[in-house]
Amino acid sequence: MTAGIDLGHPQAQAIQSDEDVVRVRQLVRTVAVAARLSLVDQTKLVTAASELARNTLVYGGGGVAEVTTVDNGRRRGIRIVFADDGPGIVDLDLALTDGYTTGGGLGLGLSGARRLVDEFDIVTGSGQGTRITVIKWSR
């Protein structure tokens, strides 16, 4: 995952309730607008953030989202880190398969979110919590 240089400090939003998922969406949108992402890219990023924030709440038992504007020298982008101390994901390949779900959803959260962003990195394991990092670059 290309790191890029951080522009400014990350803005954090705790994810402990339904309303917090809405707050994550609003925070991501504000930052995406400020970073001049195109309307479609904003929409994709906010949608991905919504899926991942809900996962953090439902499967991770709550956690935190950190939103940072980054610059890789050529383009500006937004990096969002979703971290929780939940049970972690045991079979990552299976979890990233379209349609697979353990929570009664559509099973599009992880796999769908991955398609909506430019970079997607996940660190997890049984009992280790989950840390998902995504980046969307401006076109």
């Binding site: 309307l39 479609v40 904003q42 929409t43 994709k44 949608t47 899926e51 379209d98 559509l106 599009l108 796999s111 769908g112 979110a113 398609r115 909506l116």
Partner: peptide
């Protein structure tokens, strides 16, 4: 439905 929303839904696989 807004165009950007429709495009995103297609990408999401919904």
């Amino acid at each position: 439905m807004r165009p950007a929303v429709a495009i995103t839904l297609v990408e999401l696989g919904l």
